[in-house]
Amino acid sequence: EPVTLRLGHPVFEAHPIHDTAVRFKEAVERISNGDVTVEIYPARQLGDVKELAEGVQFGTVDMTVNSTSAYATLEPAIDAFQLPGAIPDYEGFVTMAKSAEARAIMDRLENHGMVALGVYDGGLRHFMTVGEPVESLEDMKGLKTRVAPNRMFLDAWSAVGVNPTPMAYGEVYSALETGTLDAVEINLTSIESEKYYEIGKAVTLTGQYFWPGFLLVNKNKFDSLTPEQQAAMRQAADEIVEPQVMAVKELDTKVLKRLDELGIPVVTPSDAFKAELAAAFAPVVEQYEAIDPLIADFSAKAKMLTPAAQ
C-alpha cells in the first residue's frame, strides 16, 4: 500500500527550506523504493507559516518544513534551537540537530499531534544595515531593527540596545529602503533571494542564531504507515541533515562573494565586539534556560561545542 504525502512549505524555491523538502523527497522515495512518495507544494500554496503549523497538527496538510519559532508558543522548549550565541557554526548545528537533547525537545511535539522527523537550517542570522556599517555594540544602539515576532528575539535585541521593531515581513523591504527601518536581522540567503542587497549598505556577520526548520508529519498519518514506511522516513530524515546544513553553508559563501562583487561591505566582528554581544545576550540566555530543563540541557551541550575553525 504505497502512500503519497502532501508537503507544503512557505518559501520560494531558492530557499534552504525548499532544499530540505526536495532532499527529503528524494531520499525517502529512494529508500522506500517508491513506497512513500512526497508531493511538494512550495511558496505558501497550502498556507503561510501559521496555517501550515496548524495544518500538520490537524492533518489537513500531511507534512511541512516550517520555522521552529512558529512552534515556540506551543512548546516553549523549542526556543532552545535559537538561543542567542549558543551554536557557533554550521558544523555545530549538525552536531546539535542530531543530538539526544534536540530529539527530546522535538518529541514534545507529539503532544500536539505532530511527529518531528528532524531539524534543518534556513541560514545563520546576521545584521544588515541601510546606514553605516556596524562595528561595535555602540554602533547598534537605537537602530530601528526589524525583529521576527518572537518573545525571545525581542528580549535578546532589547538587551543589545537596538530599537527592536516588529513589522509584517511584506513591508520590510520598503521600510528599509525608505529608512523607516535602519536594520534587519537576517540570513545571508534571504539577502540574496529577497534582493535586500539592492538596499543594504553593510552586513555585519554577527551570527546570533540559526533559523532552523522542523520536518514535520501529522502524527495520525505517521502512525497509519507501515513500520517499514516509518523507518524509511526516519532514515531519510536523518541522512539529509548534514548535506542540507552544509549546502546552506556553501550558499552563504556564494552570497558573501556576490556581496563583495556588489561592493557591499561585509564586517567580520572583532573579538571585542563578539564579547560585548555575548555579554549582552547572557542574561537573556540564562532567563530562557530557566524556563525549561530541556532548554538548559540543550544549552549545556551547545556550550561544549568547539568551533570547527579552531
Binding site: M167, A168, E171, S174, A175, T178, G179, T180
Partner: peptide, 10 residues
C-alpha cells in the same frame, strides 16, 4: 511620509 521613512504604506 512613505518616501521619507516616517511610516509604512499601511
Amino acid at each position: 511620509g512613505i518616501r521619507g521613512g516616517i511610516f509604512t504604506a499601511t
